[in-house]
Each structure stands twice: as C-alpha cells, then as structure tokens.
Nucleic acid binder design. Structure first.
Length: 754
DNA sequence: GGGGGAAGGACCA
DNA sequence: TTCCTGGTCCTTCCCCC
C-alpha cells in the first residue's frame, strides 16, 4: 500500500519505475496495460514496493531540483555553454575513427536456450530460468506474456500460469560459453567478453587476412547433432536465416556445406553459423565502427539475426537520429526519466539540447551524452584492466539473531577469502553491505593500512562494522535480508613486485636500493604511505598473518604490507634525492624504519638498539615522533619537529602508541616474509645469533628458521585470536583508535639473522 | 579549495 | 508468501591539510 499522501500522479510515476520494461527483444506489441496491472497488483503493499516508491520519490526530487536549476539559467550562460559544446563537438569530430570493424555478439536468451536444447520438451512452452524469487532469463514464448529477466518468478507465474521455471545451472552455461568463446577467438584473439553470453570483437585484422583466403577456408560443413535423449537431427536452420550471397553446396561426401564471403557481414554470418553448429544455439550480432553502436545494432535483428551499420559518418548520424536514448548502454531508467523531463527522448534531441545538458549535468555525464549524440564510442577493445574489487553477498529470509548474523558474516568472509586466494589478491578496504527487510541498503567500509585477504583478517573488520550497525539500532534487532562483504583497493601490480628480498635490504645504504626507488618514485609520495596509524584506522592492522603456518609467510601479496612499511620509507629517503639521477654515495648511515631518520652508524647492533628504542617508545621524550611523521617521512619530519617545539610538542600520545604498534605489526609481516625467503636457503639461515620470537619475546633454542617460523606462526595465531575478541572500529568523530593489546615488540633478533 | 575516503546510487548482464 | 548477484563507475558529503 502506498504511504499516506501518495498522489495518483506519483503512483503514475511509480508505475513507470515498476512497470514492464519492454525494451527487450521479443517484447514488442504486448498488452502493456494488462501486464502492468498484474505487476502492480502483485507488488503493491510489499516492502519492496514501499522501497521502490521511496526511490521513485527521490528521483522525482532530483528532477525537481534540476528543473529549478534550469529555470535560473540565463541566456548568457546558455550561449557560453553552447560555445563550449561546439568546440568540443568539432574536436571530437576531428578525432572520429571509422576505420575499425567492431562486432557485438549476444547469444539469444542464453540460459533458456541452453536448457531448451538439453530438454527439447521445453521447445514450445513458455519457460524461464531462475526461481520463484527471481528469473535470470526467459524464452521468447514467455516474453509474449511479459515475462522477462529480473522479474520475480511469482509475478511471472501470475502473468503466465503455464510458465515452466527451470533452476539455473551455471556450470553448464560456463561450459557452453567456453565453446562459444573458442569461435570468437578465431575472429579476434583479443575479444572482450562482457558476460557468459556476450562479447565485443574487433574483426578488422581478421577481415584484412580474410580477403586473401581461398574459398576452402571459408567453407563450413553442416553437422548432425545428437541430443541427450539420443535423437539425431540436423541443426541446419533454413538458409533464409543466413541470407547470403554464397551458394549452399554439397561436398564430396554428399554433406551440405556453406561457403561464406570475405566481407564483414559474411564473416559475422559465418561466426554465428559456427556457433550454432558447435552449440546448437543461436546468436545475434551488430557490426559497427565502434562499441556503442555495435551494441545497439546487435539488438536490431534479434533473435538470430545481425545488422551492419556502414562505416561512414552520414550513416552513423542517420542511425543515431531517431534512436531512443534508452537503447544506449549506460542510460538506465533514472537517466531516461531525467532526460525525459527535459523533453529529450531520442539521441537527436540529446544533440539539440547539449548546451542545456552541459549546464545541468556533471562534466562526465554531459561528455557521455555528447558522445552518444554524435554516435561516438570506443573503437579500441581492450580487456578490462586489473580487477577493482571482489565481493560476495547473500540474500535470505529475515535474519535478526546476532549469532546467525555473525556466523553468516564469517561465512561470507571465508568465501571471499577463498575467492581472493584464487586470484592472489589482497585489498585494503573492506566493505560490509547490509540490506534490511525494508530493502534499505547500507554499506559500511573501512580502509586499513595494510592489504588483507584471509578469513580472519576480513572477519576482524567485517564483524566490527556489523557490530557497529547492530549497536546503532539497538535495542531493536537488526533485521536483515541481505549481507555482503567486499574487498577493494587492491595492491597495485607495482606493489606486488618483490621490490626487496627482505627488510634487511631496506636497511642497506641508500645507494644500494635503487630498484625500489625506480619502482616507486614515479608516484606521489603520499600515495605510497600508510595512513597515520591510530588516527583513522579501526583496529590493529589485521595484516598480521593469521593463516596457517604453511601459508603464513609465503604469500606474495603479503609483500604489500611489508612494502608499505619497509620500502616506502626507503623510497621516501630516496625521494628527497630522487630528482637526481646520481646515487648518494659515501653515506655511512642507515635509515630507521620507524622514525625515518638517518642513524650515523653501519653497526647493526647500534642500529638495532635505535630501532628498539623507537618502537618501544623509550626514546619518545627525545624523538617526539608522531603519526604524521610516520606518514610523511623525513622531509616533513623536521618541519613538524620545529612546529612541535612551537606548540610544546603536544601530540596525541595514544595515537602515537597506536602508530608504533601498527608499524610494528606491519613490520612483523615483513619479518615473516624475510624469514621465509631465507628459510628456503638453509645455508644462509642457520648461522647467526639465537632467535627471539617477536611475539612471545622468548628466545628459541634453534637456529633453524623453518622451525622458528613455525613457532612465530603459532604465537601470531594465538595473538590474533586473542585480538579478534577485542577489535572495535575507530570512533570517527574523535578519530581515536580503539585500544588493542600492545606488546613491546622486539624483532631485532629476527631482523638481522643474515 | 583540493584531495581523498566513505556512503550511496545508477547501471549492466 | 515470494523481488538476485556481482561488478564498475559516478556523485555527494565530509574531513583534513
């Protein structure tokens, strides 16, 4: 039921949001009114409906603000914007590239088609793949009833009582997708898959080669297929579905063959033919000079069809003229509605109102609109760069019990940790996503100074974020219907490189450390530095390895933590001189990884003592190192020191304590890493002083680093388990870190076991 | 005022 | 009775420097 005060006009508006989106192949000419009535009746009064109503109102408010803004635009502003648009238009026009042949291939009703292929009984029935909660796709029979992807199954059933709902089988779809991709690769080895059933290809190079191909290379034989019931049938479709200039011939064995031509349309027709031969599934394709247009074109003759847009400017402009904005990828229901409020429904309108759009929308948005209105898009297909985030989430019936919530949280962290491990990723930002029973979504994120990846590390952060949310609604229970955990801010490729074999490398004289300088110096210094520990971070750096001993020190990505704490200061030390290509020579000093100062000694014993003092805080009175110093490094350190003198050195000691602790912990990571790398080389590792465990502080009766590592692992695990009980996110209003168990960490003996 | 993190939302398949 | 999942990008807000 609509909330009080809901006017009929807002319901009308709401209907546009909830109503059938028939912007999909196979859904033209439906009885929209009848379908929408059923959808509304099924949805009204539900929490989902209420939430949609709320979102609709927010969009309406956005539109109102926009219209108000529009009313205040002066002629002068408009003409200025017009000049700006015109300049940009001519710049873009000059750069227009019509030389590439881009193809967008989309499998027809993919999941449904796979299921139908494997169960021909479904052939003539309306069917959908998914569940009563949600459908992934539907076949063309079902679409005639208004049943489509992203529709709940129970509503679909009301629209089409005879609908057969088949559960999803992603393993099967992945296998078929792999077969399809094998065909794609023959036309563009660098094709860009967008999902299991969709890809972009640049076939320009293929066409170049194809022109010189003999007919035999362009001839494909029709094959017989056998389905899983043992029935054999010819999968050759009527040739009319493959309109071609080339004849259908018979080969020597009497089988039918198809000869394809050399032009783009023929190449794509051949590709679709081969996909169909290989998988018994049909695909549709669009051929155009860029990705944006190819995507629109692939929808033109769906299903089992293709459309080519000529590579000349006028053809592109003509094609764009009457294209509804909603057909363009990237323009969804909200943008469509906002543009609609300005009277813009087609791409030609978009072009006409560009000056207005430049004043009402952000630069990114109106630039995007301008590209669309000119029919411009990317002509360079490149695979996505590095992954930006990884997440897992789960929807369930109402969950209010704390125990269940924390247990699920841990499960999600575990799943995510496994996924991260598969791709050897570690990230610094952990985000908890919660959707309550009213469909309100909240995300709560925390960024750590070190990259994390294990279940315990993720859970340590996620559970604190969850706890905070639970506390916020207390004494009411947190009534959830979805929970998710995401990790982002992955360590960059640079960070992953083993810049330094061990922390000892860092302690070498600066001139010996040119490699790390060259790796890092091109980036702004600040980017590489950890946030001031204890100032904005939640809890003890969970990058403490909590893995089992087998994996504790070998993780490559663990380098990120050590990089942050060991390489960066080095980079820092060299940053001051990085502009000079001349390495500093003749320096008889070592740089302290804690205070970043140069210690005038090359004696490790003396230097060790200095580090110990820095870490234990004994020298605080003399040093007054602050977290800010830790962040900025030596060049700023001195200025701060002067400032400190002026301000009487009043700094937050608690924060400093945290900073030292955090630093110590992150350095422990480095130590672990070093130990492990040395552990692989026993000839080097079995000499040296007795080893003192940096966690329990006890001297171990062994020189064997493998054994010693095992001991440290055990101690660390215990330490972390202890900590997991007491982590609390930082109070963002006061910016103080939560208390965490601090141990005066002395890892000198471990550091210098060379 | 700019940079950057957090939060939320749009959009896609 | 019942409305997904996993990802990217963008905008807005706020804090800090």
């Amino acid at each position: 039921m609509a909330t009080g005060g809901t006017s009929s006009s807002s319901e009308e508006g709401f209907l546009s949001r909830m109503a059938l989106n028939d912007n999909k192949a196979g859904m033209e000419g439906l009885n929209r009114d009848k379908i929408n009535k059923i959808i509304m009746e099924s949805s009204k009064g539900s929490r989902f409906y209420e939430n949609e109503l709320k979102k609709e109102q927010q969009v309406n408010q956005r539109i109102e603000r926009m219209m108000l803004q529009k009313a205040h635009i002066t002629e002068q502003q408009l003409s200025k914007a017009q000049a700006q648009v015109e300049k940009m238009t001519s710049d873009l026009e000059r750069g227009r590239d019509l030389s590439r042949v881009i193809v967008h291939v989309d499998m027809d009703a993919f999941y449904a088609a796979v299921e139908t292929r494997d169960c021909p009984d479904l052939m003539d029935k309306p069917m959908a793949v998914g569940s009563m909660s949600m459908l992934s796709t539907s076949n063309y029979h079902a679409r005639k009833f208004g049943v489509r992807a992203a529709m709940p199954g129970f509503i679909a059933k009301k629209l089409c009582p005879n609908l057969v709902i088949v559960p999803t089988n992603f393993d099967k779809y992945r296998a078929v997708s792999a077969e399809v991709r094998e065909v794609f690769a023959d036309y563009d080895p660098h094709f860009l898959p967008m999902s299991l059933d969709e890809a972009y290809l640049d076939i320009s190079d293929h066409l170049e080669q194809r022109r010189g191909w003999p007919e035999a290379l362009r001839t494909h034989r029709l094959r017989l297929h056998t389905n899983n019931t043992g029935t054999t049938w010819s999968i050759s479709l009527p040739l009319s579905l493959y309109p071609s200039s080339s004849p259908c011939l018979q080969d020597a064995a009497g089988g039918e063959v198809e000869v394809f031509g050399t032009c783009a349309e023929e190449a794509v027709r051949e590709m679709r033919f081969r996909i169909e031969q290989k998988t018994s599934l049909t695909a549709s394709a669009g051929i155009a000079p860029n990705m944006m247009l190819a995507k629109v074109c692939s929808d033109k003759n769906k299903p089992n069809g293709q459309y080519k847009l000529s590579s000349n400017r006028q053809a592109v402009i003509d094609f764009i003229q009457d294209l509804p904005v909603r057909k363009v990828s990237g323009i969804g229901k909200v943008t469509e509605k906002m543009l609609g409020a300005l009277g813009i429904t087609s791409c030609s309108h978009l072009g006409q109102e560009m000056a207005l759009l430049a004043l009402l929308f952000s630069e990114t948005s109106w630039h995007h609109f301008l590209h669309i209105s000119m029919g411009l898009g990317s002509t360079h297909i490149e695979r996505d760069g590095e992954r930006k985030s990884m997440s897992t989430e789960r929807t369930f019936g109402e969950m209010s019990a704390l125990k269940e919530q924390f247990s699920l949280c841990r499960e999600l962290c575990q799943d995510l940790a496994q996924d991260l491990q598969k791709e050897a990723l570690k990230g610094k930002t952990v985000t908890l996503k919660l959707k309550n029973v009213n469909f309100e979504v909240k995300t709560r994120a925390w960024t750590l100074p070190c990259a994390v990846a294990t279940t315990e590390e993720l859970f340590a952060v996620a559970k604190d974020l969850l706890k905070t949310e639970i506390d916020n609604v207390s004494p009411q229970p947190l009534r959830l219907r979805l929970m998710g955990v995401r990790v982002s801010s992955f360590a960059s490729a640079d960070d992953k490189k083993p810049l330094q074999k061990s922390i000892v490398g860092f302690l070498h004289k600066k001139q010996t450390n040119s490699s790390s300088t060259s790796q890092i110096s091109h980036k702004p210094v600040k980017e590489h530095l950890p946030k001031p520990p204890g100032l904005t971070q939640p809890s003890a750096c969970p990058s403490l390895n909590t893995n089992t001993s087998a994996e504790t020190h070998i993780s490559m990505s663990a380098l990120t933590a050590s990089d942050k704490m060991t390489h960066e200061p080095t980079a820092h030390a060299s940053t001051s001189s990085c502009c000079s290509t001349e390495p500093e020579s003749g320096t008889d000093s070592l740089t302290c990884p804690v205070c970043f100062r140069e210690v005038n000694t090359t004696e490790l014993t003396v230097f060790n003592r200095h580090i110990d003092q820095c870490l234990s805080g004994v020298t605080m009175g003399q040093n007054n190192h602050t977290d800010t110093e830790l962040e900025r490094g030596p060049s700023v350190c001195e200025e701060e020191e002067e400032e400190d003198e002026k301000t009487g050195g009043k700094r937050e000691e608690g924060a400093m304590e945290k900073g030292r602790e955090l630093l110590s912990r992150c350095m422990l990571d480095s130590v672990g890493l070093q130990l492990d790398s040395s552990a692989g080389d026993h000839t080097e590792s079995t000499t040296g002083p007795a080893l003192t465990c940096p966690v329990c502080q006890e001297t171990q009766d062994t020189n064997d680093l493998t054994l010693f590592n095992l001991h440290v692992d055990l101690c660390l695990n215990q330490e972390v388990l202890h900590e997991l009980g007491g982590l609390a996110p930082v109070d963002r209003t006061t910016h103080t870190a939560p208390p965490a168990a601090h141990k005066g960490l002395c890892f000198r003996d471990v550091l210098f076991t060379e």
